[in-house]
Write a protein that binds this DNA or RNA. Structure first.
Lengths: 198, 198, 198, 198
DNA sequence: TATGAATGAGTGTTCATTCAT
DNA sequence: TATGAATGAACACTCATTCAT
C-alpha cells in the first residue's frame, strides 16, 4: 500500500533519463515502463501520474540546486568570487543532475505557466535576483564592465552555463570543475588575445 | 497541385509561431488551424502533413542562413572579423526567423536522426566546420587564446549566440546588430574589468 | 446550368472504370476526377454525389440487361434454348458493361439494403424468378436433371456466369459468344468424358 | 507482449464476420469493437492495426486450406478423384472459414499487390498450378474433355466452387459434403439430361 | 508489487461535399 | 464549366490512466 521510497527514486532516475533523451511530451509512460522492465500500468502503483514524475524530478533538482546556491550566497564573497562560485556550483549540478537539467531546459518555459509548476517561475525569479544582483554589485564595485546592458549580460552568463547541459555527458573528458574554470575564463576575460578593444 | 505559395507562407508563419511557443509534439494540428482561423482538415489542402510543415519551416530557414553564412565565408576576412560577421549574421537570422530558430533549437537533436531531416545533421556538420575552422585559424594567427580547449570554445560561442533565440523577440529594445555588438564584446573581451587573469 | 448528357456519360465511363478497379469505397472522388483530368469539386457540377454516380452506372446497366433478358423471355423458347440465350446474353452484357458488372458483383449485396438501391433487390428477385422458373420448366419437361437441388442448380449457373466478369477483359482471346458456348457446354454436359455417373 | 491467444482468436472471429459482411474498407474499427462489446481503442491492446487483423485472418485460413490441399495432392489419386477431393475439401474450408473465404474473395485482388500480402499471390499461383495441372493430367488420361479451353475450364471450376462462399451459411440445409457432391455432379456431368451434345 | 485488459479522450489525417469566383 | 479553398464528420490509431486479480 505504501510504495518504497528507494524504488521510487530508482524509477524516477529511469524516467528522468527517458524524459531528457526524448522530451517529456514525446515520452510515453510505456517507454519509461519498458526502460524500467515493467508494464505501463505498474508505474501507477508508485506515482499518481506522468506529470507527478516530472514534478518530483524537477522539484528534487531545484531543491539541491538551491541548497548549493544558498550556501554560496550566504558566504559573503565578493561579486567576482560569487559569480565564480555560482558557475562552478552550476556545472556541478549539471554533472549530478544532467537529466533533470536537460528536462528543465527544454520544458520549464511552457510548464511554468501551469499552477502545479509555479515553483519553476518562483525559482527563476529568485535565480535572476541572485545573479543580476551580483552582477550589479560587481559593476558598482568596478570589477565588471559598466558599458554593457546588464540584463543582456545576465542572460549571456546564464544561458552560456546552462545550455552546456545539452552536450555535457558525465564522465567525459573534463571534470565539471575544469569546464567551469575554462568557461569562467572565457566569460570573464574573453576569447580574444592582446589588448582589449577600447 | 501547388496551391498559392503566398497562402502557404502565411500558414507556415502561423505554424512556426505555434511550434515555437508550444513545442512541435505538443502542438496539435487543431491549434495551428485555430491560430490560422480555419479547421484542422483544411490545412491538408496546403500541406501533406504536420511534419511537412515543420520540414518546410526548417529548410527555408537553413537555406537563408547558409546564404548569409556562405557570403561571409567567401569574403576572405581574417578570423576575428569572420567571427564578428558570423555572429552578426546569426543575430540577424534570429531576428528574421526567430520562430524557426527556436524550433530548430528545441527539436533538431531528435529530428536529425530521421531520414527526412538528415539535412539538419548535414547543416550542423557544415556549421561546425566553418566555426571551428575559423577559431583554429584565429588561434594559429594569434588573435584567439591558445590556452582553451578549442571544442569547448566552439560550443561556448555557438550556444551563447543561438540560445538567445529563446528570449529574443523582434522589435525589442535592441536591434540585432546592437545585440551582436554587445555579445561579441563579451565573448571576445570578457565581462571583467581591469587586467586579465594571467 | 444544365450539364451536357454526353459529358456525363463520358465521366460515368471513367468513374465506372475506377470503381471496378479499386472498389466503390476505396475509390475517392479525387481519383475519379484525376482520371477525368479535372478537380474533385468539378464533378459536382455534373453529379449530385459519388453515390449518384454509382446509382446511374448500375441503373443504366440493369436497364440494358433487362432489355436483353426480356426479349429472350418473350421469345417463347424451350427451357434449354432459353438458358442458352440467357447465358449468351449475359456474356454479351459482361462484354459491353464489364466495369458495371464488376461493380455490381462486388457491391450489390450491401447496397441492396439501402432505400436508394432497392431496385437492385427487385432486379435480383426478377432475375431469380426468370432463371429458376426456366430451370423448373426444364426439369418438368425432362430436359434438365431432376436429381439435383434446384436452388443449388440455380446458384451454380448464375454464379458460374457472372463471376466470369472478375477475369473477363473485352478484346481478349475469346469473343463473348465463344465463351458462352464453352460455358454452356460445361454447364449442360459437364467436363467429364465417357459415361455419366449413374 | 503476446496477450492471451484465445482472446485474440475470439476477436479475430468477430472481426472476420464484420469484414465479410461489410467489406474490409467499409468496416470501421469501431464496428468491430462494437460487435466485440468493447471500445475501438481496446482492440489495439491485442492487435497492431486493422490491417494486421485482416492479415492474420487470411493467413490462418490459407494455412489450413493448404494443409488440406497438400494432403489431397500427396495422396496419389487419379485426376478425377483429385478434383473430387479438392472440391470436397474446398467446401469443407468454406464451411469452417466462411467469413475468411468471403473476405478473400472480395479483397484478395487488390491486397495481393501490397508487400504485406504477397503470400496471397503466392498461394494463388500454387493453387492454379495444382488445379490446372490436375485438369491437364485428366485431359491427357482421357477422363476430362479435350475440346474445351483448359484455362477456361480451370476458371469455371475454380469460380464455381469458391463463389459459393458468398451465399453459403454454416448450419444450412445441406452439409458441405452434400453440396460438394451435387456441385461435382453438375461440373462433371452437366445439368442436362439425355445424350450429350456431340 | 506487478499484470492484463480495458477505457476514453484526443491526435493526425482523409474525404465527400460546398461555394464564391 | 471548372477551379481553389474551405468545411465537418469520420477514421485509424495512441496514450495516460484505471482496476480487478
Amino acid at each position: 500500500m505504501t510504495p518504497s521510497p528507494e524504488r521510487r527514486r530508482e524509477l524516477l532516475g529511469v524516467a528522468a533519463e527517458v524524459f531528457a533523451a526524448q522530451g517529456y511530451n514525446a515520452t510515453t509512460v510505456r517507454k519509461i515502463a519498458d526502460a524500467a522492465g515493467m508494464l505501463a500500468g505498474s508505474l501507477y502503483y508508485h506515482f499518481d501520474s506522468k506529470e507527478s514524475m516530472l514534478d518530483e524530478i524537477l522539484a528534487t533538482f531545484l531543491d539541491e540546486l538551491w541548497a548549493g546556491y544558498d550556501a554560496v550566497l550566504a558566504a559573503g564573497l565578493g561579486p567576482r568570487e560569487t559569480i565564480e562560485a555560482l558557475v562552478t556550483e552550476s556545472f556541478r549540478e549539471i554533472d549530478r543532475h544532467h537529466a533533470a537539467v536537460a528536462i528543465y531546459q527544454k520544458e520549464s518555459r511552457h510548464l511554468s505557466v501551469q499552477p502545479r509548476f509555479t515553483y519553476l517561475a518562483d525559482s527563476q525569479r529568485k535565480f535572476e535576483k541572485a545573479w543580476l544582483g551580483t552582477l550589479e554589485r560587481g559593476v558598482a564595485d568596478g570589477v565588471f564592465r559598466a558599458d554593457l546592458d546588464i540584463r543582456l549580460t545576465y542572460r549571456f552568463v546564464r544561458d552560456t552555463v546552462w545550455v552546456a547541459a545539452s552536450w555535457y555527458r558525465p564522465g567525459g573528458l573534463h571534470s565539471p570543475e575544469e569546464i567551469a574554470r575554462q568557461y569562467l575564463s572565457m566569460v570573464l576575460d574573453g576569447i580574444a588575445l592582446g589588448e582589449r578593444t577600447p
